[in-house]
Amino acid sequence: MNDPLLKLLDGLPSAMLDPARADRIRVRCHAALDRERRRVPREAPRDRRWPPIVMGLGGLYLGVVVQRVLALYGLV
């Protein structure tokens, strides 16, 4: 940082955060992290189950559409 004005800004003091508040934030975040950790693995298998089902139904629908179109033009 060569700019003297930016250097001046760099020298400004940091804010003082109330230590009790800082601890409360940390504790709250640890609790939330714990909750997220327990929630995410439960959701993952459910998320993995759905895509093949949706893809299967989509494929089936597309097959029927193609079959109908071919029948309409007398190709089957």
Binding site: S14, L17, C29, H30, R37
Partner: peptide, 19 residues
Amino acid sequence: GDEAAFDAVYDAFNLRLFT
């Protein structure tokens, strides 16, 4: 979800963010 990793990030950025 590693708490120690969270603490390391918290210690590195908390005051800068607050300022």
